[in-house]
Design a protein around this nucleic acid. Structure first.
Lengths: 219, 219
DNA sequence: CGCCGACTTGACATTAATCAAATGTAGTGG
DNA sequence: CCACTACATTTGATTAATGTCAAGTCGGCG
């Protein structure tokens, strides 16, 4: 991130506290007071909003290196639940202390703004996905996105384990669990991927990307 | 916002440049280099993303007092087009200069973070809307949201002019223009609102809110 | 007055949801 | 190691919501 050693020491001082969250454990709940941001060190999370009518919407899946809780800054309370998809570990970052540091480390501030902005951009892509794409395209886009995020972390872009249930995927993509199942099967039949429970291997990334872009359909 | 007079003077200095944008005028385009944020002084804008496949998704409608361009911070180029829905006026805010001020005016920084965070929250609500709600619920939520934003600006929450076309509304809500037309008509028949072209009057806000919350359906 | 774009309305098609059942998988205790 | 249970996933048949296509109407503007 371009921070000096001294900067890093100061940063380390405030993000000392680590916290483990077991699978299905709740990192924070909607409505809870906002005091910390959370940097994921290990594992995966999902965030979801709950409607008054009982409707639930998964708003994102987060993995190591990503930041949780930025939506809470505006109102001092959280707007969604954050739940661990597997045994995970986060760093608590007390936001008031982080704000103090911003005054001393401009590079840190700039980095923080980039992360907030990135989250805005990510959500806009999801809006495009939910508002404009058909089912097939949504799932293709989702899988390609997951792959590229693993790749950015030094893992394989085409072979990974899904950490979330079909239900979570469906909810995130605005589809039912049955649709997800059928689509995965269709992709499998067309030789686009291998899937066994949560083990996923993308065999034809080119076609899958074309599906995601909407420049091709399958079957 | 809790700024001192001196703070305000400094802020004024950097946001001096005003810019008029005529109806249908483009404030910025996807891919254009990011240099300024824009504070809307007057008028309305829409932002939309464009897909490779030609698909377009309206990602938001912005009105006076709101900030445009925050999604561009992370990559130094804009991720969507911003277009004026009527003759409008904005303040250009050179972002590097704003960043300098952040070091001197903590209150300004805090306010900026709230605005970024608020945008994240807003987009999450749209994800809920697009992923979970049926057509009727979406339109009701949209109208209630518009009303409350006008109310927050000192205008009437139940009587206002739509600045965007049916097509824009439909695109934003992930529905076709025909569906919007039919839904507005259904609401009208049920005495929930009066609508004449773009002139909108909400007659039964209670029921409309119930529709938006999903605790009731209509017809 | 007449044209053009925006909107409305109607008939029909399609996508994905719903409902229902079957199958598979992981975990548990005998 | 093997039932046995609970839960997740798959598969099939049907339906409902919304999209698509095609006219038609309205309203503003030159």
């Amino acid at each position: 991130m371009g921070l000096t050693d001294v900067d890093m020491q100061q940063l380390d001082k405030i993000i000392g506290r680590r916290r483990k969250v077991a699978r299905d454990g709740i990192l924070y709940r909607m409505g809870a007071p906002f005091t910390n941001l959370f940097a994921i060190r290990l594992g995966h999370f999902k965030t979801y909003q709950i409607n008054r009518g009982g409707g639930q919407q998964v708003t994102g899946f987060q993995m190591a290196g990503e930041l949780l809780g930025m939506d809470a800054i505006s109102t001092d309370h959280h707007h969604c639940d954050a739940v661990a998809l597997e045994d995970s570990e986060v760093c608590e970052i007390p936001f008031p202390r982080l704000e103090e540091l911003f005054g001393h480390i401009p590079t840190l501030l700039r980095h923080f703004h980039r992360m907030m902005s990135q989250e805005i951009t990510r959500e806009q892509s999801v809006m495009l996905l939910l508002g404009n794409m058909r089912a097939e395209q949504r799932l293709a886009a989702f899988l390609i996105n997951l792959g590229s995020r693993y790749e950015a972390r030094g893992y394989c872009a085409t072979s990974f384990q899904l950490r979330m249930s079909r239900e979570d995927i469906g909810n995130y993509l605005g589809l039912t669990i049955e649709s997800i199942s059928r689509l995965l099967n269709k992709f499998k039949k067309n030789g686009l991927l291998k899937v066994n429970n949560r083990e996923m291997e993308i065999l034809d990334a080119v076609t899958l990307k074309a599906l995601a872009a909407g420049t091709r359909t399958c079957d």
